[in-house]
Simulated assay, not measured.
Amino acid sequence: MPTLNHDTVQHTVPVTAPAPLVFDLLADLGSWPHFHGPSVHAEPIGVDGHGQRFRHWWVIDDHTVRTWEASWQFAREQLRIGYEFAPHQPGAAGVRGSWTVHPSSDTTAQVRWEQTVVGEGSHDAAGAEREMRELLDAVRSAAEHDEERRDLVVDFEDPLFVAGPVEAAYEYLYEADKWPERIPHVSRLVLEEKVPNIQFFDMDTHTPDGSPHTTRSVRICLPNHRILYKQIHLPKLLDGHTGHWSFTPTREGFILGARHTAVIKPSALSILGPDTTVLDARRYLRRVLSANSMSNLRLAKAYAEERQDG
Rank of each mutant, 00 (worst) to 15 (best):
Thr3Leu: 10
Leu4His: 13
Val9Thr: 06
Val9Tyr: 08
Pro14Asp: 12
Thr16Ser: 11
Thr16Gly: 05
Leu25Ser: 05
Ala27Cys: 08
Asp28Glu: 13
Ser31Glu: 13
Trp32Ala: 11
Pro33Phe: 04
Pro38Gln: 05
Pro44Ala: 04
Pro44Glu: 05
Ile45Ala: 08
Ile45Asp: 08
Gly46Glu: 09
Gly51Lys: 03
Gly51Tyr: 01
Trp57Thr: 08
Trp57Cys: 01
Trp57Arg: 06
Ile60Ser: 08
Asp61Glu: 10
Val65Phe: 08
Trp68Lys: 02
Ala70Val: 04
Arg76Val: 14
Glu77Asn: 13
Leu79Pro: 01
Tyr83Glu: 10
Tyr83Thr: 12
Gln89Pro: 01
Pro90Gly: 09
Ala92Pro: 00
Ala93Leu: 03
Ala93Ser: 15
Val95Thr: 04
Ser98Phe: 02
Thr100Asp: 04
Val101Lys: 03
Val101Phe: 00
His102Ala: 14
Thr107His: 11
Thr108Glu: 09
Ala109Val: 02
Arg112Val: 15
Thr116Gln: 09
Thr116Asn: 02
Val117Ala: 11
Val118Phe: 03
Gly119Ser: 12
Gly119Pro: 08
Gly119Phe: 09
Gly121Leu: 07
Ala126Pro: 04
Glu131Met: 12
Arg133Cys: 13
Leu135Ile: 03
Ala142Val: 01
His145Asp: 08
His145Ala: 06
Arg149Glu: 04
Asp151Lys: 15
Asp155Lys: 11
Gly164Cys: 09
Val166Asn: 04
Ala169Cys: 07
Tyr172Phe: 14
Tyr174Cys: 12
Glu175Lys: 10
Lys178Ile: 05
Arg182Asn: 11
Ile183Arg: 00
Ile183Cys: 01
Ser187Phe: 02
Ile198Val: 14
Gln199Met: 11
Thr207Val: 00
Thr207Gln: 04
Gly210Ile: 07
Thr214Cys: 07
Arg216Ile: 06
Ile220Met: 12
Cys221Lys: 09
Cys221Ser: 13
His225Cys: 10
His225Val: 14
Ile227Thr: 05
Gln231Glu: 11
His233Pro: 00
Leu238His: 07
Gly240Leu: 01
His244Arg: 14
Trp245Leu: 06
Thr250Lys: 00
Glu252Val: 14
Val263His: 03
Pro266Arg: 06
Ser270Arg: 11
Pro274Lys: 14
Thr277Cys: 09
Ala281Arg: 07
Ala281Ile: 08
Arg282Met: 05
Arg282Ile: 10
Tyr284Ser: 02
Leu285Phe: 01
Arg286Ala: 15
Ser290Gln: 08
Asn292Trp: 01
Ser293Gly: 12
Ser293Ile: 02
Met294His: 14
Met294Trp: 06
Ser295Met: 06
Lys301Cys: 04
Ala302Met: 11
Tyr303Asp: 12
Arg307Ala: 15
